[in-house]
Amino acid sequence: MLSIVIPVYNYNILPLVEQLHREAFSLNIPFELLVCDDASTQVYHPEQLEAFPYLRWFSNPVNQHVAYTRNRLLKTAQYPWVLLLDADVMPVSTTFIQQYLEQRNKGYFFQGGFTYPLSTASTKRSLRFVYGSEIEQHKHLHSCCNLFFNQRELQLQFDEEITEYGYEDTLFFFALQKRGIDVTRLNNPVIHHSTESNQTYLNRSTQACWGLAQLVEQGKIKTAEVQLSRVYSQLEKARISPLLYGINWLLKRPIQRNLLGKNPSMPVFKLFKLLEFHKAKVAIRKSKSTAVTP
């Protein structure tokens, strides 16, 4: 009946597995819990995890990124309904799985949403926490951290050509739209427990901005489909995008101080991503120009 699939990289999923296994077992349904480690540099409690009777543990020999790992789990799943979760989440409700199972006759694809802990994050982790609690949890239309769907009917997969952080979830939802698959949003959230430092998250955000520029260049994402590329396009049409280089030169250090500090500003974070996207677009143009130069 149910395959619970979780890709993991350098994260302790034992508490999550315990809660999911406990509830699924109590429902007296056929189920399996599939976990795939993406070549973690640190693996937590593998012996305890493998001791769960309905859990199967897999490992990628080298890091393949989340799209490949999710696809591997989806191909392995033996039951029609799949519950896809990220490793760093925890269900809010003790009837989390039951609430999903009750929806099976009402559609094929469901998104439960997510929230963030009410506790104040430390200074070193404030950026991820502020962005998540102020923006992300209210606009999680393209998040794959908590999904329930009929894989046997839909045969979904992720784009494995994306091997860097950012926008694999966005592409996944765009593919759903193109196929006319309705997404039913439920109030069945998980808590997202991020452990990323400000610097790590800033580095990953930079990576995502450059990745978006490549995806737009490749035609996988249309400029108007994502706010960042849409705003940048508007600046280009107004012929003021070159000013972003000067803004970066003047404000780079103050922007870094703010985003790595205790109270990061979300407008400043948006400016940071716009500046990084501009750098990526300029670099792509230079690369193309060099490639065609005899």
Score class of each variant (00 low, 15 high):
Arg204Gly: 00
Glu217Lys: 09
Pro53Met: 09
Gln199Ala: 12
Glu168Thr: 11
Pro189Ile: 11
Arg72His: 13
Tyr165Ala: 02
Tyr245Phe: 11
Lys286Ala: 08
Glu134Pro: 01
Ser205Cys: 11
Ser119Pro: 03
Gly112Asp: 08
Val8Ser: 12
Leu251Phe: 15
Lys288Cys: 05
Ser194Ile: 06
Gln111Ser: 15
Leu20Gly: 04
Phe269Ser: 03
Ala238Lys: 07
Leu141Phe: 14
Val5Phe: 03
Lys178Ile: 01
Gly211Tyr: 00
Gln177Tyr: 04
Ser241Trp: 11
His65Cys: 09
Pro117Ala: 10
Leu49Val: 02
Val268Arg: 06
Phe109Asn: 02
Tyr54Gly: 00
Trp57Phe: 15
Ala67Thr: 15
Glu217Pro: 00
Gly113His: 08
Asp86Trp: 06
Thr184Arg: 12
Gln78Leu: 15
Phe31Ala: 03
Gln151Glu: 09
Tyr100Ala: 06
Ala39Trp: 01
Val8Gln: 11
Glu161Asn: 13
Phe172Thr: 00
Leu127Asp: 04
Ala291Val: 07
Pro189Tyr: 08
Leu171Gly: 02
Val231Ile: 15
Asn263Lys: 13
Tyr201Trp: 15
Val292Asn: 08
Gly219Ser: 07
Ala87Gln: 09
Thr200Ser: 14
Gly211Asp: 02
Lys279Phe: 04
Ala51Val: 04
Arg257Pro: 00
Asn258His: 07
Pro91Ile: 12
Asn263Val: 05
Arg185Cys: 09
Ala39Asn: 14
Leu83Arg: 03
Ala175Asn: 13
Asp88Gln: 07
Ala39Cys: 14
Glu134Gly: 03
Ala51Gly: 11
Gln199Thr: 08
Tyr131His: 15
Phe172Ala: 00
Lys75Ile: 06
Pro254Phe: 09
Arg204Ala: 07
Gln155Ile: 00
Leu259Phe: 06
Ser265Tyr: 12
Leu215Tyr: 01
Leu202Thr: 01
Ala213Asn: 02
Ser289Asp: 12
Gly166Glu: 04
Leu55Lys: 04
Lys279Trp: 02
Pro7Gly: 06
Glu196Ser: 12
Leu2Phe: 01
Arg204Lys: 15
Lys288His: 09
Trp249Val: 05
Phe172Tyr: 11
Lys286Gln: 14
Leu49Ile: 07
Tyr201Pro: 00
Lys273Met: 14
Thr41Ala: 10
Leu83Ala: 12
Gly261Cys: 03
Thr94Arg: 13
Glu225Ala: 13
Thr200Glu: 15
Phe31Leu: 05
Tyr131Val: 12
Phe172Asp: 00
Trp210Met: 05
Ile247Pro: 07
Gly261Phe: 06
Leu16Thr: 10
Ala224Arg: 12
Phe96Cys: 08
Ser3Val: 02
Gln64Ser: 13
Gln207Ser: 11
Gln234Cys: 07
Asn146Ser: 10
Cys145Trp: 04
Asn150Arg: 07
Arg152Ile: 02
Tyr165Phe: 13
Asp37Ser: 05
Pro189Asp: 10
Gly166Met: 03
Val216Trp: 00
Leu20Trp: 02
Gln42Arg: 14
Glu164Thr: 10
Tyr116Asn: 05
Arg204Trp: 05
Ala283Met: 09
Arg70His: 10
Phe52Thr: 04
Asn263Ile: 07
Arg239Asn: 12
